[in-house]
Design a protein around this nucleic acid. Structure first.
Lengths: 336, 336
DNA sequence: TATATAAATGTAACCGGTTTCGCTATTTGT
DNA sequence: ACAAATAGCGAAACCGGTTACATTTATATA
C-alpha cells in the first residue's frame, strides 16, 4: 500500500507538501503540484481514510440508527426507502453510510458512544420514540443529527417529517367527497409524534366538515399488520360501524383489509380503506390500496441535505424540513 | 473525550498496561487490572475505534456492495432482506455495516480501493455479475469477500447461494403434479449465474419428466416486473401457448400476472404462475403468488458466518454455503 | 546466597495522515 | 537599495491507540 511518505520520497518533497496537494491547499508552486499529482496518478495513491479520520476527526460517513419499535411484521419498507434516498444523495457527496447493527442500544451503548466510536460525521435516526431517554444526550451533544418522523430539535439536531396533519386531512376530505360521514381511524403508536399529528389532522378535518368525533371509532393498531387486523376485527363487532377507515399506516390498512375479507365483507364495497405511507406492498394488494403517500426518497435526500449543511457549514440550528404528502387514488375506496 | 493516556495517568501506569487490560491480555497483575478497570468504568472510557483501526488495520466493520444491475422496479426487496439477516448476525459479533453508497464503482473506485479506504475487515457483494472485471482483482486480493448468489471463489473469497437447480426442479415438479405439461419459463438475466442454474434445473426437470424442452416458451424477463410483463405479452401472442409459467423471480411473476389479467385472462384458471424468491410483495398480490422461497435472512447470517470465519480464523479457503429452498404454495397455481 | 526464570510493567516506535510554526528565497514597495 | 511582505516548503508534534523489545521486580532453583 502506497502511503503519503512513499509519494513524498519519490517527489523529493515533505509529506506536508504532498498533503497540501491532496487537500488542494495553496502555498504549493504549480510545478511541484503538477509533479506530485502525476506521481499520485502513477502510483494510484489514495490517502488512507482511517488515518485521515484520526487526525481530522472527520470520517466522511453518516451513521444510521434504525430502531425497530414499530415491529410492523414487514421488513421496514418505509425506512428502507428513506435510506435508499439517503444513499443516493450521500453518494454524490462522497459519504458512506455506517449502519449500526446492534438493535439494543441504550443498555450497553448509547447513541453518542456509538457515534464517537465510529467517528461518524453525523447521524440519521429513524423509528425513535421521543421519550427515549437516550435521545436527550444526543440532542445536547454537538453531533449533527437528523431525526426522521419525529420533531426533535436541539444543538445540531433537526428533523425531516411529512406533513402529517395535512395528510390526514386529505384522507378525510377524500372520503368525505366520496360521501362518507362515518369515518373510523386506526391509530399507530399513540406515543409517537406521527400518530399524534395524524390524529390531530383527523380531528381537525372532522371538525371542519362538521362531523362529530367519535372515539369509539378510533382503534389502536400499533402500526403493524397484525395490529390492524385485530383492531378491525374489534371494530366489526360494533353495532354502529363506520363506513370508511383511515389507517395511519399501510401496514395496518393491509391488516384491516384482511380482517374485512375474512369476515365475508368486501373492500371497498362494504368499507372504504385508506392508508398512509404508500409502501411498496400497497400497489400489490387487491384491491390496491388508496393511500397518502410520503415522498420517502425525498425524505432521505432531505436528511442528507440537512446533515451536510450542519457538517460542512457548521450550522448549529437548521430549520427542519416538512415535506408535502400526496393522495394516491387506487381501488380501496369508493363512493357511498 | 477521555483517551488511553488519561486513564494511564490516573492509574499511574503506562498506556501499554492500559491497552493490555482493554484487550484482555495476560501479564497484568490482578491488582493493577482491577484498578484500571475501575477507572475505565468510572470515566466511562471506550477506546477510540478509529485510532485502533489505524494501528491494527482492523475496523470491526463489514462493507456491503450492492450493485443494481437487476433494476427490478422494486426497491431490491431481496437483497434488503439478506442485509437484514446480516445485520442481526453481525450485531452480535460487534461488527457494524458500512454501506458503500456510490453506485458507480469501477470507474473511479474499484471494490478493493473502497474497502481499503474504509478499512473494512470483509465485504459482502450482492447483485454483481460474474463478468465484472472489477471482481477479478478483489478475488485475487486478501480481502475476505463473500458473494451472494454468484459462485465466485478465490483467495479469501467464498459465496452463499440458494440451491437454484433444485428450486427449479421443485417448481416444475409441482406444476407437473398439478397436471401441467406445457410449462414456459421467464429467464432473468441470462449472463447471471442464478439464471443459468435455474435454467439448468428447468431443463433437467423437464427431461426427467419426459417433457421436451421448447425454447419458444422461454422468454427473457430481465428480472424486472416490466420485463416479466413484456415477455408475457409476447408469450400470449403465440398460437401454441403453455399452460403454466415458471418465472425466475417474483418480480417478473408479478409482471406476468398483470399482463395476463390485462389481456382478459385469469390466474390461475388460464395460467398457473410460479415465482422464485418469495419477496414480500408475493404474499400481497392477488392471487397470492406460489413461489420457491429463498431463505433470505439465513443467507444473510450465512454471509456473516463465512466472513467472520475468514476474518477471525484467517481461513483462506472456505467452503461456500448452499441453502435449501422451499416451495410455498399459494393461490397462483391450480390443477389442470 | 547467587542465579536462572517468570511475572509485571515501561519505553519508544509505529500506523498514515494533518497542521502549526518557522525558515528561506523571492517579490514588492518606497 | 533596503525593509517589508509573500510565496514555497519542511521539521516536528499530534491524533489515540498497539506492540516489539527492554527493563525491573518477584519467585523458584541449585
Amino acid at each position: 500500500m502506497t502511503t503519503i511518505k512513499d509519494i513524498a520520497k519519490i517527489a523529493d518533497v515533505s509529506t506536508t507538501t504532498v498533503s497540501r496537494v491532496i487537500n488542494n491547499y495553496p502555498d504549493v508552486s504549480d510545478e511541484t503540484r503538477k509533479k506530485i499529482n502525476e506521481i499520485i496518478q502513477d502510483k494510484n495513491y489514495r490517502p488512507n481514510s482511517v488515518a485521515r479520520s484520526l487526525s481530522t476527526s472527520k470520517s466522511n460517513s453518516i451513521g444510521v440508527f434504525f430502531t425497530d419499535h414499530f415491529n410492523s411484521g414487514l421488513h421496514h419498507p418505509f425506512f428502507r426507502e428513506v435510506i435508499y434516498g439517503m444513499e443516493k444523495a450521500l453518494g454524490n457527496k462522497g459519504y458512506d453510510i455506517v449502519y449500526f447493527t446492534n438493535r439494543h442500544w441504550g443498555e450497553k451503548f448509547s447513541y453518542i458512544e456509538k457515534c464517537e466510536d465510529r467517528n461518524v460525521d453525523g447521524v440519521a435516526l429513524m423509528g425513535v420514540l421521543e421519550d427515549d431517554p437516550n435521545i436527550k444526550k444526543l440532542r445536547e451533544s454537538n453531533i449533527p443529527s437528523v431525526f426522521v418522523d419525529v420533531d426533535i430539535t436541539g444543538n445540531f439536531s433537526s428533523y425531516v417529517i411529512s406533513n402529517n396533519i395535512k395528510g390526514s386531512k386529505k384522507a378525510i376530505q377524500y372520503l368525505y367527497e366520496l360521501g362518507h360521514r362515518k369515518i373510523g381511524m386506526l391509530m399507530g403508536i399513540d406515543t409517537s409524534k406521527t400518530s399524534q399529528e395524524r390524529l390531530k389532522g383527523y380531528k381537525q378535518a372532522l371538525k371542519s366538515l362538521n362531523i362529530p368525533y367519535n372515539k369509539d371509532w378510533v382503534f389502536d393498531g400499533k402500526y403493524s399488520e397484525k395490529g390492524g387486523y385485530n383492531a378491525t376485527m374489534n371494530m366489526l363487532k360494533l353495532k354502529s360501524r363506520p363506513t370508511a377507515i383511515f389507517c395511519q399506516s399501510d401496514g395496518m390498512a393491509i391488516g384491516a383489509m384482511q380482517a374485512i375479507e375474512e369476515s365475508g365483507l368486501k373492500v371497498p364495497d362494504d368499507f372504504s380503506i385508506i392508508g398512509f405511507d404508500d409502501i411498496e406492498a400497497s400497489r400489490y394488494v387487491k384491491p390496491s390500496l388508496t393511500t397518502i403517500a410520503q415522498n420517502k426518497e425525498k425524505m432521505g435526500s432531505s436528511v442528507s441535505e440537512l446533515l451536510i449543511k450542519m457538517i460542512e457549514e457548521k450550522k448549529q440550528n437548521i430549520d427542519p424540513i416538512k415535506l408535502p404528502v400526496k393522495l394516491i387514488k387506487r381501488e380501496s375506496c369508493c363512493e357511498i
